[in-house]
Design a protein around this nucleic acid. Structure first.
Length: 983
DNA sequence: TAGAAAACGTA
DNA sequence: GTACGTTTTCTAG
């Protein structure tokens, strides 16, 4: 470097934290990736590079480097193991940004510097010193006081947020001492955020005054006896060694063994296309435009870069390698990791520690006044992590009223008992007094007015920098949304557990508590009663409610401590971050929108079905010769196979005659009249009771729409399930059943749009098993079942008999289900031996499928689980059982899971992106329902065509960029006035 | 009154 | 042959 050179050293790590807290949260439109700090960083760097002259930084750099912390394992930890031990860890939505900011640095064509064992500050000190020795000037882009000791007449600092240059005068103004005395000052004051001890009772003002009087730290410590104030004198004498240790910790190393020199950091021309590709990938439109202008690049011609995102894994960023700080729970007091631990070690330690802290209800508090609530929330906020749970009057989130809520920021330990600090609490809001039931129950005494309590709660729940933890958050999210609160910054223990342990048992709180702590929480029944004597939660005694509700928050927090570290350790962090957690608001919105159902249509159908069933009932009893309960399989079996002596097919496992549709169809085919009528009767009564009678009761009195509830963690494979009512099994196969779909309608001026994946599971199969013939067929848009038939039976596709195609279709489905000769024979009504021959032929024709199935079985047996193409695991703990029947069942399930599960993952990805994609396109279409491979939208009529385009695009590209499918995904979409016609 | 079994709707 | 949820009947307590 030369005399006139000017080196800029950007404190990258410092900037990340500052930008995160100072700037409004920002997420990438396409997938919700948090990018606020990245955006701030890019804007700041661009400003430094292009507009330096116009700002108070005052100079233009000739050399520039961005410096980062490598990890917390530095030489300072050797000096003082507690160094930074209490540091609050980065918030969840900052974690992925560490890697992105390094990417940004490279995209700007700037050196990205870090070194193991040293903090960014030491590297900055080293380079600044080297530059100074060469006679050049340095500007450190930071406002961190730890760097102020470096300020000289050749080294200044620059605060980008305040646009302010920091030189010796500014240091003196702020701290009362010149830069060269900053080390001594910090040695006395210490630093609570880095856990540097200093001398108790000495703050910056006192320290500056003492240094003014005594000159420097050594002199002060020697002559401490001269200090007049008793306490101050005693402290300085007693803690002199601590001050010297602190000095070692705060003194920056200027001799870090760096391999570059400042001269290597010569600023080069921007690589416009590369930078723009990155900015586009981040979705920074304004900056993209500016950079395009400045570099004379046509941004429209540039594809967004593929940027790898470390959503939760501990690959980058300060402290993330250490494990104990990789999530904010390090602040919760459970013993953390020591040096060199792997994430797995850490997770195991957490599990062990969790079982040791016993759950004790006596420490829970019931908070009944606003001041205490505010104080509790303030404490929780400092901790940065808080478990949250609502208590309401109903399991239906769309109808439930809030009764109270509970919070926990640490496990409530047993030792402190009732007199110790409160870490978990319940806040009753609308419990009834119970005395005046006749008057509808007055509000019980001693509850915070709900508006006041919710305003405190809102501050907490909507602050993304405080991590909220809930068990099944979607429910609480919907409740809070109805009270005008939108939860931001959250984890869901149910979903974490699901990502980790799908197939290993339930993910409900009671099951998890039992599994991890051997503890059974107070049962809901115990506080609210059951059956006829059950009451809604607002009639539960507040003391009982406190124990029950606070325990739920306490247990939820403990579960999070145990489960969260496992995500990274077991490689499913991205499954949780991308496929589970973002689904919470997506599904919550779908559920709260609901779908319009025409009560009149259902009512008319109910009448029709009732008439038809009554007529059949009469005929059936006529044929049977007596009145009996047709709905009773037991009585029916006795009539058919006992009294009438029809040839009884099979029996169920309890020894009863089977009267399944299959059996009755077979009898009907033999010419018997009665079974046919029973099948028809069953169809009508089924449609009536399950659909036309039941659905109207689900119409919400307020919204006049039907709001299903989606379960995110109910299946082993990753599919959703729907209940209350189940809208994923609305009839479609028969003409009678389809009539029910005509009752699913849209608002006037709108259309229902249904978009479904064509053959998605067979496409996934072609991809995972890598079958050339299948891939080719899909690429060519061929009829896949006809193609299969043609390959297997040598029949040309043209003018193929329907029966031949039907058999091939059954085989294709069979493959997906883990085919057995027994099952295929059943399905096709052929002999087992014939089915077996079909399978043999199929495997000869498509040997890759056989390989895939064998490999999947072997993998499942070795690992106990299988994976989807996005890394979701489905566990099969019984895969190696000695019971041949059970083992075969598990093997078929294990073969099916990657196929069904990958398809489920794909539509999840589409759903996560859908709302933003529609909004970006200026559309107001609303996604209402998901039926495994189908999405249903309500769309204003003028927007229909454009919506179909966007929806199709998002769905067909849903696997990208994570997985590039070897087979195209195809989506069919159409619009109509009801679901029957749209489908 | 709670839970299992049988049946049947969907992808 | 895979994955679910709901209804009705029937049994055990």
């Amino acid at each position: 470097m030369k005399k006139d050179d000017h080196l800029f050293l950007v404190d990258g790590s410092g900037y990340i934290f500052r930008a995160y807290h100072a700037l409004p949260p920002l997420t990438r439109k396409t997938d919700g990736l948090p990018v606020g700090a990245v955006s701030g960083f890019c804007n700041m760097v661009w400003k430094l590079l292009s507009e330096a002259r116009d700002t108070s930084v005052g100079v233009t750099p000739t050399h520039l480097a961005v410096i980062f912390d490598h990890s917390s394992q530095t030489f300072r930890k050797d000096l003082y193991p507690e160094y930074k031990a209490n540091r609050s860890a980065p918030p969840e939505d900052l974690v992925p940004q560490f890697g992105l900011i390094r990417e940004a640095t490279r995209a700007f064509n700037l050196p990205c510097i870090e070194m193991e064992g040293f903090e960014a500050d030491d590297l900055i000190a080293t380079y600044a010193r080297q530059a100074e020795e060469a006679g050049a000037h340095t500007t450190i882009i930071s406002s961190d006081k730890d760097l102020m000791q470096l300020v000289t007449d050749h080294v200044a600092m620059y605060d980008t947020m305040k646009d302010r240059r920091i030189e010796a005068a500014e240091v003196i103004e702020k701290w009362g001492v010149p830069p060269e005395k900053m080390i001594d000052l910090q040695s006395l004051t210490g630093d609570s955020t880095d856990n540097i001890p200093g001398v108790p009772g000495i703050g910056p003002k006192t320290a500056a005054q003492l240094l003014e009087t005594f000159g420097d730290l050594d002199t002060l410590l020697q002559r401490a006896g001269e200090i007049k104030q008793n306490k101050r004198r005693e402290n300085i004498i007693e803690f002199a060694d601590q001050a010297r240790l602190s000095r070692e910790l705060v003194t920056l190393r200027t001799d870090a063994p760096v391999t570059d020199t400042p001269g290597d950091f010569l600023l080069e021309e921007q690589d416009g296309p590369r930078l723009i590709a990155f900015l586009k990938a981040m979705g920074f439109n304004t900056l993209t435009r500016r950079v395009a202008e400045a570099t004379e690049t046509d941004a429209a011609q540039i594809e967004p870069a593929e940027v790898a995102v470390e959503w939760g894994a501990a690959a980058h960023g300060p402290d993330l390698d250490a494990g104990d700080a990789s999530d904010p729970s390090s602040a919760t007091g459970i013993a953390g990791a020591s040096d060199g631990w792997t994430p797995g070690d850490f997770a195991a330690a957490r599990t062990k520690a969790a079982a040791d802290v016993k759950i004790d209800h006596s420490g829970y508090a019931c908070i009944r006044d606003a001041e205490t609530l505010a104080a509790f929330i303030a404490t929780a906020r400092e901790t940065g992590v808080v478990a949250f749970d609502t208590e309401t009057t109903s399991l239906d989130a769309m109808q439930a009223d809030l009764v109270g809520f509970s919070l926990a920021y640490q496990p409530q330990d047993a030792h402190s008992g009732a007199s110790g600090p409160v870490k978990a609490c319940y806040v009753p809001l609308s419990h009834k007094s119970g005395q005046d039931d006749l008057l509808g129950g007055g509000l019980a005494e001693g509850q915070i007015p709900i508006d006041a309590a919710l305003s405190h709660l809102k501050d907490l729940l909507e602050d993304p920098s405080v991590l909220k933890i809930a068990q099944n958050l979607k429910y609480d999210w919907l409740i809070m949304k109805r009270y005008g609160i939108e939860v931001r910054g959250y984890d869901d223990t149910m979903l974490i557990s699901y990502a980790l342990d799908a197939g290993r048992g339930g993910q409900g709180m009671d099951a998890l508590s039992d599994r991890w702590f051997g503890h059974k929480p107070i049962a809901y029944k115990e506080v609210a009663g059951s059956g006829k004597s059950a009451v809604t939660f607002d009639y539960v005694d507040i003391d009982k409610a406190t124990a029950y509700a606070a325990e739920d928050a306490d247990v939820t927090l403990r579960l999070w401590q145990v489960l969260k570290p496992r995500l990274a350790a077991e490689g499913v962090a991205s499954v949780y971050e991308r496929l589970e957690r973002p689904m919470v608001p997506v599904l919550a919105r779908m559920e709260s929108r609901g779908i319009r159902v025409d009560r009149q249509i259902l009512s008319r159908l109910s009448g029709d079905f009732a008439q038809g069933a009554a007529a059949l009932e009469e005929e059936i009893q006529e044929l049977a010769g007596e009145k009996f309960n047709i709905g009773s399989p037991k009585q029916l079996g006795e009539i058919l196979f006992g009294k009438l002596g029809l040839p009884g097919g099979s029996k169920t496992k309890t020894g009863q005659w089977s009267t399944s549709a299959q059996v009755l169809e077979d009898l009907a085919a033999e010419g018997h009249e009665l079974p046919r009528k029973i099948v028809d009767w069953r169809q009508l009564t089924k449609l009536k009771s399950t659909y036309t009678d039941a659905l109207p009761d689900f119409i919400n009195p307020e919204t006049k729409r039907v709001h299903t509830s989606y379960a995110l963690a109910a299946t082993t494979t990753g599919r959703l399930s729907s209940s209350d009512p189940n809208l994923q099994n609305i009839p479609v196969r028969t003409a009678e059943g389809r009539k029910i779909r005509t009752a699913f309608v849209c608002e006037p001026g709108c259309k229902l749009v249904s978009a479904d994946y064509s053959q998605i599971e067979l496409r996934v199969l072609a991809h995972v098993a890598d079958i050339d013939a299948l891939k080719q067929a899909f690429a060519d848009g061929m009829d896949i079942h006809a193609m299969t038939a043609s390959e297997m039976f040598g029949v040309p596709v043209k003018d193929m008999p329907a029966e031949v195609r039907r058999r091939a279709k059954a085989i294709n489905f069979g493959i997906i289900y883990g085919i057995s000769a027994f099952g295929l024979a059943n399905q096709l009504g052929i002999e087992r031996s014939e089915a077996s021959d079909y399978i043999k032929t199929y495997f000869q024709r498509f040997p890759g499928i056989k390989d895939y199935m064998d490999n999947t079985k072997a993998y499942a047996r070795e690992h106990g689980y299988v994976e989807t193409i996005f890394g979701r695991k489905a566990h099969y703990p019984d895969i190696a059982t000695s019971n041949p029947h059970m083992r075969a069942f598990n093997e078929r399930a294990a073969i099916n899971a990657p196929i069904q599960g990958s398809a489920a993952d794909i539509i999840r990805r589409a759903m996560v992106r859908m709302d933003a994609a529609l909004e970006d396109a200026g559309l107001t279409a609303r996604m209402l329902l998901q039926v495994h491979d189908e999405l249903i939208f309500e769309v204003p009529e003028p927007e229909v065509d454009k919506t179909i385009g966007i929806v199709t695009d998002v769905m067909e590209s849903a696997s990208m960029p994570a997985v590039s499918m070897k087979v195209p995904l195809k989506v069919d979409a159409r619009a109509a006035d009801n679901w029957d016609e749209a489908h």
